[in-house]
Design a binder for these strands. Sequence first.
DNA 1: CTAGAACGATTCTAATTGCAATCATTTGAG
DNA 2: CTCAAATGATTGCAATTAGAATCGTTCTAG
Lengths: 141, 141
Amino acid sequence: MTTEHETRAQTDRELCGLINGLAKQIEAHLRTRASALGLTASQGAALRELTRPMTLRELAERMSCEPSNATFVADRLEEQGYLERHPHPGNRRAKQLVLTPEGAELRERLLGMLSEDSPLAPLASEEQDALRRLLARAVIR
Amino acid sequence: MTTEHETRAQTDRELCGLINGLAKQIEAHLRTRASALGLTASQGAALRELTRPMTLRELAERMSCEPSNATFVADRLEEQGYLERHPHPGNRRAKQLVLTPEGAELRERLLGMLSEDSPLAPLASEEQDALRRLLARAVIR
DNA sequence: CTAGAACGATTCTAATTGCAATCATTTGAG
DNA sequence: CTCAAATGATTGCAATTAGAATCGTTCTAG
């Protein structure tokens, strides 16, 4: 006999695989577009998440990576002239990452490219909303 | 004015962040449990996916990683005596990865630990099913 | 049959990532 | 006020990962 918690555990495992697979698909999609702009996937992710000036820690959280990696990525973007580290107003420990005009322009180009052939395109708008609600309930913020 | 495809693109970006975040949560959850058994996160993922004997390529696909990494992980598991590479019946190129009794036992222990405090626990069974359907529609198999 | 393409696994290398330690700054308990 | 703990960023190092090249096997067009 198959107990209820066994099937639950199985669904749970299936979901892990699906979520991981979709995350990899999204990353691959990002990688190809970023690469066309001379960026790594991580640099592309950083650019995508920099919707406004933010601290390095906040960028790391939005990228779901360690701050040390965000530092590494920010270094590269800074070298390429796409962002600057400004002193944070009101907290001398923190730095504010600010896109340069070139960085902002590159970001727009990247976003345009990302919206084409998105891995999430097979889903209708209502489905995307439903997915967002479900994920938001599971993700720890 | 905000056009329709702009809000769609924004939802799309939000979803990318949520999916990536959840994937990282799942991996972190797996990492702690695997670590308690003396395994790396990847080894844990391999064990989780080895529901039956399969080729290295199939394992790599289920783990959403490159075959070279699956080789690496299988090497470690084999060294530790948890799996064996058997000749594949009917295809001399392929090898069949088979869990040893110790490996199968370890897998059961890991699965038990993984079902506790799963990151997906906040979702009710119906929600998990809904999530599974949505993801299955987006993921390329 | 028989090349040539495709496939499965492996190796090697380079790049990415996480983790622990460090430094400067800030916060808060007493 | 003051000192210990916490925070933000960075560095160095180790481990993981992806990507290209290689080797043996299998498939297939002609």
